[in-house]
Design a protein around this nucleic acid. Structure first.
Lengths: 338, 338
DNA sequence: ATGAAAGCGCTAACAG
DNA sequence: CTGTTAGCGCTTTCAT
């Protein structure tokens, strides 16, 4: 392994100059910079990140914590974050908390504390006060994606608005019997996401002068199977059947489409379906949905973090940054009876 | 940040002893070990990984390189690896190569070389000789998952055997007109995986005395949509229609099931379908498949790597470790006409 | 089993 | 703009 002094000797300068030239911190004349870069290239020198970190206190490394990795949404956010970090010369250290309580504790009480990361991105995790306090004690920036956290900078989509938007789309098509497939309370990963989406749904109905009908609400678990089963019940009896369904996730929405088919119903003629996410398979199933952009969320989280890491600029803007969403009309929605 | 000397003072020992007690390297009497652990706990001491790494040369960190993250298979392998690493006190630094050539170069020529990782796991990547050489030059262990790499320890499933198994299942049910949905040559990420699976399929047919019929092979792109479109053609004309389809991925298999439905065919009465992977949604669609265990593959890769990192034991066993697979019979296969 | 002390390879004052 | 030098916080000989 060739070290900094070897480069210094080769370029005929001091190690300090090599450090400055290569890192861009501190003044170096263009000429020497070139000389140093040439020497470094020639010798194949790559800075030892451990030595550099120990001396400077900067790790060039961000910790990313997710509840699961094998779900499209999370892995997409991580992928976006990874790309943005790479561009900026940062590494991404991943912590997936699938293992439960013990694993989570070990991550927060040990792994994140060993001075390995400059900052932490927490995705769809409702951090406890203790966890936030620990991270704050390290003076490490922290940004949350996916929901508000007490005293933490976050990026979130407005779930109420999303649900309202989706429901309004159905209302605008002329639907009045609109069902909602939401979640049960124990999906606590997700900051009352089910509740927020239900609120948005009800708000849209009320604004249109329609009283939400409890019989048109069903709770499921956000999966395709859950959506399928719930939709079977919802659409099963011909009498009082809704003409449209707003599902709080694309997976449930696709489950609904499949259930409708199995019941001999034609989508969208007999029933319109809207989802949320623009999941992987939404396009294939022709699903109208509200797209979120998880990769973009990952990238934005990184931008904000890196901004915070740059010295000097502690612009105390709003704690929360709203993320964009967009209605994508495909073939699963139409005017009732069309 | 409380440091090692503070702990040493509190426990009334030297920093060397604290280091030994907490790391488990070197002899420490049980009594002092307990004392040190108590002090460390009380003071909330966590070792600084950078200082520790610089002094010891060990990073306690593994680099994992994947071509994509937002696909079920890859994120599952990563998740498995992550869990195994966490158990062993290791961090996982993720490099997802979605960005193309430039990104890949920057990862292999810069990121992986800065002494940040003790070893590298490469998932479903056919590494170039140059990339392997670079990694070897660092004297870092390297293990590949998903395909053979020249001179590198790898974990792979036997794709020929998998395909043969799947086809034999259909043969055993009495099918003789068995189609195969494979891949085109440009899925080069995956070590000739399409070819291998096709070979296994043909081998099984030939062993049963059936000549593979080129008209019963279709290439697609391993996605649900691709499978759907290919299956539409394959199953479209009633004359000479196959009674069974072996798809080289679960996503194509599910596409096939959906295509069959849309053609008015009943699965498995009119056509049996087998896939490969035991993907997320396979169970929901009742798909018979050959399960691979991606999380297990990730964990195994870690075990092997960690073993290699432990000094002394350079057991030069086989370069390749075969990974298990298993036929999962669900409701998408049956005797022809049943 | 324990302590003293010499680095690990780089960065950041400080001086010039 | 550049060089000198003192650490960064641990680990690890080498003594004891």
């Amino acid at each position: 392994m060739v070290g900094i002094d070897e480069v210094a000797r080769h370029a005929g300068v001091s190690t300090a100059t090599v450090s400055r030239a290569l890192s861009g911190n501190g003044p170096v004349s263009p000429a020497t910079r070139l000389k140093v870069e040439a020497s470094a290239g020639e010798l194949g020198y790559v800075v030892s990140s451990t030595a550099s970190s120990l001396a400077s206190g900067r790790m060039k490394n961000i910790g990313v914590v997710v509840p699961f990795l094998d779900r499209w949404f999370f892995s997409s956010v991580v992928e976006g974050a990874q790309r943005a970090l790479l561009r900026n010369g940062y590494d991404l250290t991943l912590y997936s908390l699938t293992g439960g309580k013990a694993e989570r504790r070990s991550v927060f009480e040990h792994f994140l504390l060993r001075q390995r990361v400059d900052a932490v991105i927490s995705i769809s995790l409702e951090l406890t006060e203790g966890e936030v306090a620990r991270l704050h004690a390290l003076e490490k920036p922290l940004v949350g994606v996916g929901g508000p956290i007490q005293g933490v900078r976050t990026l979130t989509v407005d779930d109420v608005a999303i649900a309202q938007h989706a429901t309004e789309h159905l209302l605008a098509l002329g639907h009045t019997r609109i069902a909602h497939l939401g979640g049960n309370k124990d999906l606590d990963l997700d900051f009352h996401l089910p509740t927020n989406r239900r609120v948005g749904y009800e708000r849209a109905l009320e604004a249109a002068g329609i009283a939400p009908d409890p019989a048109l609400f069903m709770a499921a678990d956000f999966t395709m199977r859950g959506g399928y089963q719930a939709a079977k019940q919802l659409l099963g009896s011909p009498h009082n059947r809704p003409t449209a369904v707003f599902a709080a996730s694309d997976e449930m929405a696709i489950g609904t489409i499949l259930a409708a088919r199995d019941l001999g119903l034609v989508v969208p003629r007999d029933v319109s379906v809207v989802g949320v996410d623009d999941y992987d398979l939404a396009d294939f199933f022709g699903l109208t949905t509200i797209a979120q952009f998880p990769q973009g969320q990952g990238e934005s989280a990184v931008e904000i973090l890196l901004d915070q890491l740059r010295p000097g600029q502690n612009q105390l803007t709003d704690l929360n940054t709203p993320m964009p969403f967009e209605l994508l009309v495909r073939s699963s929605t139409a005017r009732p009876g069309e």
